[in-house]
């Protein structure tokens, strides 16, 4: 017997709706559960005290500082490199052999697993450049990791700048450099900052690459050469070694809140960008 199109239609609709509802349900479950167990842990002292007793007691102040420092190093390096690459790809050259190689490299970097970044960062920054397990080694490793994200979002933002802006700037006697700095860059800045924020998000969430390059020290990092751990690494060690489930939940809840904030900021930027370009 042939199934009536109406019946197939109905079944398909039910399947698709249930897939969507299922995904939303799983996501909400993960988030709500972590927040439910973790939020009660978050207090002023949790945020400001240094972990004691391997992390069993005390707060997570040093992992928070470690996260900020490592992320700052990564952004400080990846942003100029990424934006420069994007401007080169979008403004200075036609599609050619060289752009294909650059694009291929960036896309390949985007696909490399974080554990391989960890291996590379360990052997190159920690051992070969002799930086040791440190904020600097971790941050440099993350910089390479987020470079493709910054390149891609910046290039899209630069290409979205209307060609007429460039023509106006040239027609008013602008050089290429002046046109890029004064007419193109200000118009692309929102899209570019969105890319930077996405990069920050990846840095905050990363574990494997940092574990192998920044070490796992619980002490407060005092310089770029101090070993440190980030919140994600701290969470992993607490949970895996079963040191303190409650502190693990607290750290995870804080991470999720951070990621949530980063996403909200990023979406707000994108929406403003879209509204302006309409």
């Amino acid at each position: 017997m042939r199934v009536k199109p109406k019946t197939t239609e109905l079944i398909a609709k039910i399947l698709i709706w249930s897939a969507a509802i299922f995904v939303l349900a799983v996501l909400s479950f993960i988030i709500i559960y972590i927040l439910y167990r973790g939020l009660p842990m978050i207090s002023w002292s949790f945020l400001t005290e240094i972990p004691r007793n391997m992390g069993r007691d005390g707060g997570i102040a040093s992992p928070i500082v470690g996260t900020i420092m490592v992320t700052a190093v990564a952004i400080a390096l990846a942003v100029p490199l990424g934006i420069g690459t994007a401007f080169y790809l979008a403004e200075y050259t036609k599609e050619s052999g060289i752009t294909r190689v650059i694009r291929f490299s960036a896309e390949s970097l985007a696909g490399i697993p974080s554990i391989v970044y960890g291996l590379f960062g360990f052997i190159f920054f920690v051992i070969y450049l002799n930086l040791g397990w440190s904020v600097l080694a971790g941050g440099l490793t993350l910089a390479v990791m987020i470079l493709p994200t910054v390149i891609r979002t910046s290039e899209e933002a630069i290409r979205a700048v209307p060609q007429s802006y460039r023509e106006v700037s040239f027609s008013l006697g602008g050089t290429k450099w002046q046109t890029i700095i004064k007419a193109v860059f200000p118009s692309a800045i929102q899209g570019i900052s969105n890319g930077i924020i996405l990069g920050v998000g990846r840095c905050v969430a990363e574990t494997a690459a940092i574990m192998l390059t920044a070490g796992g020290a619980l002490r407060m990092a005092t310089s770029l050469f101090s070993p440190t751990r980030t919140m994600a690494v701290h969470f992993y060690i607490l949970a895996r070694e079963g040191i303190s489930m409650s502190n693990a939940y607290g750290t995870a809840a804080l991470l999720i809140i951070l990621i949530f904030i980063i996403n909200v900021v990023s979406n707000a930027l994108v929406n403003r960008f879209m509204a302006k370009n309409r």
């Binding site: 007429s164 023509e167 106006v168 700037s169 027609s171 008013l172 602008g174 004064k182 118009s187 302006k276």
Partner: peptide, 28 residues
């Protein structure tokens, strides 16, 4: 291009203030 100025078919103010638009060429 400063000697031969151009006005385009679609009004193309740059996304900045009125003042900055007019001062754009001089600042360059």
């Amino acid at each position: 291009r400063r000697k031969i100025g151009m006005v385009f078919d679609v009004p193309t103010p740059l996304p900045m203030s009125i003042f900055d638009n007019i001062a754009y060429g001089a600042r360059l």
